[in-house]
């Protein structure tokens, strides 16, 4: 891997996947850029999946942000495929919540 490739990958990890801020960068600006990228991705999500945004209402933003930070979009994966993964994550989360609730009732 070239030096440039490694340095670009390091910056991208810092911006998308909570990686460490690479040497020499202003940490505040890296945070600002990371927030801007997340907002753009959230905006695309809301446009492509208005159904999810409508169903979740106020919960859309925190849930999407939590998921997005843990699941940076992989190269070659379309926005739609990425959002299908978000929808599956939401379903799994709901299933777990239902199980927890029914578990409580059985106690």
């Amino acid at each position: 891997m070239t030096d440039l490739a490694a340095r670009q990958a390091e910056l991208v990890r810092a911006l998308l996947a909570d990686g460490p801020v690479p040497a020499g960068f202003d940490p505040d600006r890296v945070r600002a850029e990371a927030a801007a990228l997340l907002a753009k991705r959230r905006g695309v999500a809301a446009r492509l999946r208005p159904d999810l945004a409508a169903t979740l209402g106020d919960r859309f933003r925190p849930l999407f942000d939590t998921w997005a930070r843990e699941n940076p979009r992989r190269a070659g994966e379309s926005f739609r495929a990425d959002l299908d993964a978000f929808a599956r994550w939401l379903q799994e989360r709901e299933r777990q919540e239902r199980e927890r609730r029914s578990g409580h009732r059985l106690d």
Partner: peptide, 19 residues
Amino acid sequence: GAGGLDSGHLLPLPRTREA
């Protein structure tokens, strides 16, 4: 993008000869 991740938006380049 780099390292297998897609930033979804334009990121600046280092203004070096290598880049």
